[in-house]
Design a protein around this nucleic acid. Sequence first.
DNA 1: TCTATATCACCC
DNA 2: AAACGGGTGATATAGA
Length: 581
Amino acid sequence: MMNTLPYQEVWAVDFEFRALTGERPEPICMVAREFQSGRTIRLWQPELLQLQQPPYPVDDRALFVAYHASAELGCHLALGWPMPNRVLDLCAEFKCLTAGLSVPCGRNLLGALTYHGLNGINADEKESMRDLAMRGGPWTEYERAALLDYCESDVDALVKLLPAMAGKLDLPRALLRGRYMAAVAKMEWTGVPIDLDFLKRLRAGWSSLKEKLIQRIDEGRGIYEGQGFRADRWAAWLIERNIPWPRLESGGLALDDDTFRDMAKMYPEVAPIRELRHALSQMRLEELAVGNDGRNRCMLSPFASKTGRNQPSNTRYIFGPAVWLRSLIRPEPGNAVAYVDYEQQEFGIAAALSGDKNMMAAYQTGDPYLAFAVQAGAAPSNATKKTHGEIRERFKTCALGVQYSMWEVSLAQRLNISRADARNLLRLHHQTYPTFWRWSDSAVDHAILTGKLHTAFGWTVHVCAGVNPRSLRNFPMQANGAEMLRLACCLVTERGYSVCAPVHDALLIEGPADQIETVVASVQQAMQEASELVLNGFPLRTEAKIVRCPDRYMDGRGEKMWSVVSELLAAAEQRAAWPAS
DNA sequence: TCTATATCACCC
DNA sequence: AAACGGGTGATATAGA
């Protein structure tokens, strides 16, 4: 393959860099090697910083090869270098070749080498070199040489890995994934604007705030010890009050929120404890990766899930924790942010890719769930969300449940309806959308028969024995959705707009406050184009929520919690400032 | 005391 | 046989 690549030059590139929490990467050194000629370039920091352009070509004649290219491309951004036009990311390709499979040594560079029967430097050495880079400068002459050699050893690895993988690559699709890695580098570089002062206050006050909440509600019950809920004390409290409590198969008390909700209906004295548990539910503010410039940045971990979605850390990424914390998002002075998301993305994908005319028509009405009810004959054609809210809710939950292969028992439970009614809803879905069901069945059959399932642009899941058939059935929707958002990220960033963060079916973007409407319109246009590219010309709608400085982002689901926390925090700070009163 | 597993909460 | 897809991560409990 190496000789058949349509490139004059093929460059394997690796950077060592320092990436402090929430900060942009600082390049330390770089090694690049051209495959055919073997020409090698080794550059240490000062020489690197002097270069206005990369020492290798980045136009269409050259291919840029890396492992997890967003890191190298982040260094390009740090150095003010342009993005290469053609990127081949062997990490993305390895993940695509093995999604759904378990690989013996993970999916980092060493794991990929091992998988292909090649060897690299040992993991301990790798770790000590990473530590040396992270320690920061100045480095001794010896350390510099060691870091450069280590950097070159990763280039050696790339040079070995490419021929081993070359025969399995689908180059045009690989380049599309590589193109996304450039978008990832830009998004990781941009980050999400955070109200750093509020975060600091929250970090400082969270523990005492929790204490106050517990004191107030747990008083006289004694269910908490310190800041922790104690199951044994809860059991004792229940026995005292003669409250029977559901148990798990394992014999322990069922402590999930659903159980608490059900029990609170019958025993109102349970309700405050439920609220308290909810308010205290896990949250580690310390881990949120915010740089000194007040921006949340972390690795987006593209292609990490088997459907090809990004999988950033839930604690480091602002979109990971409970939604009320998103109110920490606040545009900087003069700026605005907008959250732009696809409307009913998976329903639309299912409609378009299955070619089910009824489903497509339902999507195009703007309210697919109500349209489903109308098509099924459960609501009149002039029904609205207002006049038929209850019916709409049932058909909505059914349509969403179908995406996950929900069974009638779960649907009945979810909607609090009889099993017969739930069965009837599912039957109506089959009757209304027969073409969708044939398509969905055939996707599962294809997966079982061939052992693989693909998206429009070649992301592939591999089927193992004992695979969950519901997972396979869901794959076309979720994985094509991921494909669509990746394309949108490419289009939007390449057109020069700032994307702060991707969120599975949404983008958080940023722009000057006085131009945000036009920026949003362009982003929506790009997202529609992305949907048409994945869905054979079928456009998906997007909706946008704009927030201007000094307002903060607000998710309706978290509004109440945010205001409770803000008030308690302010009160706690007052007490701290005026202890006598 | 440490690790593995189960359970739970959160996100799309 | 099971019956809600893809995840991360905290915490409690059981077992070595």
